[in-house]
Design a protein around this nucleic acid. Sequence first.
DNA 1: ACCTGAACACCGTTCAAGT
DNA 2: ACCTGAACACCGTTCAAGT
Lengths: 226, 226
Amino acid sequence: MKKNSPPAKPRKPLSRERISKAALEIIDEQGMDALTMRRLGKVLNVEAMALYHHFANKGEVLDAVLDRLVDEVELPPRGSQPPLERLRHFARSHRQMALRHPHAFILVPTRRFNTEHSFDLYEQVLQAFSDLGFDAALSARYFRTIGYLASGAGLADIASHARQPDATPVRLETFDDTRYPLIKAVAPHLQKGNLDAVFEFGLDIIFNRMRDDAKALQEKKGKEKR
Amino acid sequence: MKKNSPPAKPRKPLSRERISKAALEIIDEQGMDALTMRRLGKVLNVEAMALYHHFANKGEVLDAVLDRLVDEVELPPRGSQPPLERLRHFARSHRQMALRHPHAFILVPTRRFNTEHSFDLYEQVLQAFSDLGFDAALSARYFRTIGYLASGAGLADIASHARQPDATPVRLETFDDTRYPLIKAVAPHLQKGNLDAVFEFGLDIIFNRMRDDAKALQEKKGKEKR
DNA sequence: ACCTGAACACCGTTCAAGT
DNA sequence: ACCTGAACACCGTTCAAGT
């Protein structure tokens, strides 16, 4: 005979996977500040303190969330496309991830990329630069420049169309047209629908230059052979 | 005869200025999380609740801190240098500000730039683009691209040499040399002393292209005149 | 007009205890 | 091994009260 137990909650055991997934969902739906250990516990049908059995502290939970974000960034496999196009896809994918996770994305440029997971991606990206004929110094510079652009664009795009708690916005419309004529002229070009184009504009500047550099290096190498 | 009062604290009256200054100092010295209304009050010799007479909430305090940061970004006055060099100075100054305020800088790309103060700077920067002969669409794109680079670089530089609470870093040194050969080759080029050069590398790519665009526009204008 | 003091509804994290 | 429950030292913010 069955014991008179409370309605069986068929509780799956906790795991780092389940916890970080729930954490990302909370951040996506309710923002970074909404992620508290107590709320995270509630979502998982568990006391907050149970989480400490899987993560030493909240910081570790955030690192696990960061890992999930990194996991969404795609670099097409080697050989499937020219290296330059693989890298372009990588940059776009990075920004797309930012747009999918506007509240969580801040973790990417602020917390260090120090998981094995992100090292794996990092190494592959550097391989693509190497395939272009770039040495370590040049790879480092282009890698960072593209990263700067992608993070900066991600953050700015988010900031420009995400409501912020407790903000004290000064609305552009409150000024008469003579006050900030140039800002008013520029504003329509920076609306949500145009930000893709703005990002592509920046990307093209960098990639055109990369193309030229790669070409110059190949020609140099060709000459050396002869 | 004097009353037997406690040792007179010659307390200056509170003001938004004094409060935001103290807030920035706390963030600079102890990090973003250390800024609490209670601590801010203590530094100012006042109960935390007194602050609410000057700011509606903590968010407004942060906006005031942001305003102080914006105030440190320099755009040389019109006519003092060619527009392109004024803008280059602006971009460098933006990054320098990030390095001076590693803990506070995050406010810049995440909170909206919606104070009158920042609008004034914004308008002047756009004037510099206009002086180059750029229309609103092109100004918008270059302005953003430079901003992406400067914010991205600021954040990345900070992240790479700021200790983070509760991080779980995977140290590169723990792997044998065959595991991440390219990362290991690139790492020395991304150390603290080399990040200035990396930023200048990215800046040059963009500014060279801007120079070419400005020249092309001037030639076109010259032809139209004839 | 400006500040205080107590209170409310939260936090992250600790610790000893339960199964 | 895994989770609970109470407790500690904090938060931001409200409210009524003091001067």
